[in-house]
């Protein structure tokens, strides 16, 4: 019996040292600037001052290309951030949200439900869950490939997580690739169930938002190539069960005026600037009507936002103009007058 105890202690001590080594290695392999912590410009949220974000949008590339929070600030002074990165899953989002809550106290959390049904590659649900959760819990696994960018210098530098994004997580896309899908929200009577593990983590997100007094709003960014009524029904079921508001901007009643010939760069997977402007405006209207959100324009502590607003206005006007050119060309191609 005594040798069992000795062995267990020995193994336990080894595992402890191993765990320390793994976390130390993970620390040194994390990116040095928050700009590279995540895809698109999601990492920029760490550069924002504490407790300044009132509306937090969480999603994948649909959100990153489709929702521009700076537009809300220009129009009504609402401070928002789109925390979105390609192929984020509900598992990723839960853990990211938890870490964002350490620095921010958003009043509204908008969850883009396109993440619920999407999956990279052909892994099984279990494999995807294990992979994503391990990534979140063990930074070394998530950032292990950064060994390629390590130099002797930056090994001893402190991480600098003060980078800020003018566009607050939005990435304007100005190309156009028409979608010819037609009606994609037709009723075939089905409802796509939410995978069990995904549902578990959705529930955890709901609880997390309650704990931090944020109101959770579910939306779906228009995406003609990957959304359908079955999925809508799946989410609606969940929303009804938990008493959450669900705005599906793919539905005819809520359509912000998306023209699928011009408002998408890739045949309906994502939105471009033209589409994003319409969606953002519709969402912004919903926010100002239904939520008591402060107008922060001109307030002390929000000077950087006012400055960013001016820069943003230039960026977006230019981007919209270029997008419109591409859109006009696309229309002419479709009508045979090019």
């Amino acid at each position: 019996m005594r040798s069992y105890i000795k062995h267990i202690l020995h193994v336990g001590a080894f595992l402890l040292v191993l765990a320390m080594a793994v976390f130390l290695a993970g620390h040194y392999l994390m990116p040095h600037s928050n700009r590279y912590l995540s895809g698109y410009t999601a990492g920029g949220i760490l550069g924002e001052d504490f407790d300044t974000i009132d509306v937090l949008v969480m999603g994948d590339s649909n959100a990153a290309q489709g929702i521009s929070p700076m537009q809300w600030y220009c129009d009504s002074g609402i401070t928002g951030y789109t925390y979105a990165s390609g192929w984020l899953s509900v598992y990723n989002i839960y853990y990211r949200l938890r870490s964002i809550y350490e620095e921010q106290t958003p009043k509204v959390v908008i969850l883009c439900t396109d993440v619920v049904y999407s999956r990279m590659g052909d892994e099984t649900e279990l494999q995807a869950a294990i992979g994503d959760i391990t990534d979140e819990l063990i930074p070394l696994v998530r950032f292990h490939d950064n060994w390629k960018d390590l130099t002797l210098q930056n090994l001893f530098e402190e991480h600098d997580y003060s980078w800020r994004d003018t566009n607050k997580g939005f990435t304007p896309i100005t190309t156009v690739g028409a979608s010819t899908r037609g009606d994609y929200m037709y009723n075939d009577g089905s409802r796509e169930p939410i995978p069990a593990l995904v549902r578990l983590y959705l529930e955890r997100i709901v609880a997390l938002c309650e704990e931090h007094d944020s109101e959770l709003l579910l939306i779906t960014v228009p995406a003609s190539s990957s959304w359908n009524l079955a999925r809508h029904n799946g989410i609606q079921g969940f929303a009804d069960e938990y008493g959450l508001t669900y705005l599906d901007y793919n539905m005819a009643g809520l359509d912000p005026g998306i023209d699928w010939r011009t408002d998408t760069p890739d045949g309906g997977s994502h939105l471009n600037v033209l589409g994003a402007q319409k969606l953002t405006a519709a969402l912004g209207a919903c926010l100002t009507e239904n939520y008591a959100l402060e107008d922060h324009r001109g307030q002390p502590g929000f000077e950087s936002w006012d400055k960013d607003a001016a820069a943003y206005t230039e960026i977006i006007t230019d981007a919209a103009a270029r997008n419109q050119e591409a859109a006009d060309y696309q229309i002419s191609v479709l009508e045979g007058t090019a």
């Binding site: 191993l18 080594a21 793994v22 192929w87 990279m120 990534d135 292990h144």
Partner: peptide, 18 residues
């Protein structure tokens, strides 16, 4: 040696999104 081996697999393993 043991910890080095485990770290080598975790860091240099060709797994993940890339």
């Amino acid at each position: 040696v043991y910890i080095g081996a485990v770290l080598a697999v975790m860091i240099f393993g060709a797994y993940g999104d890339n």
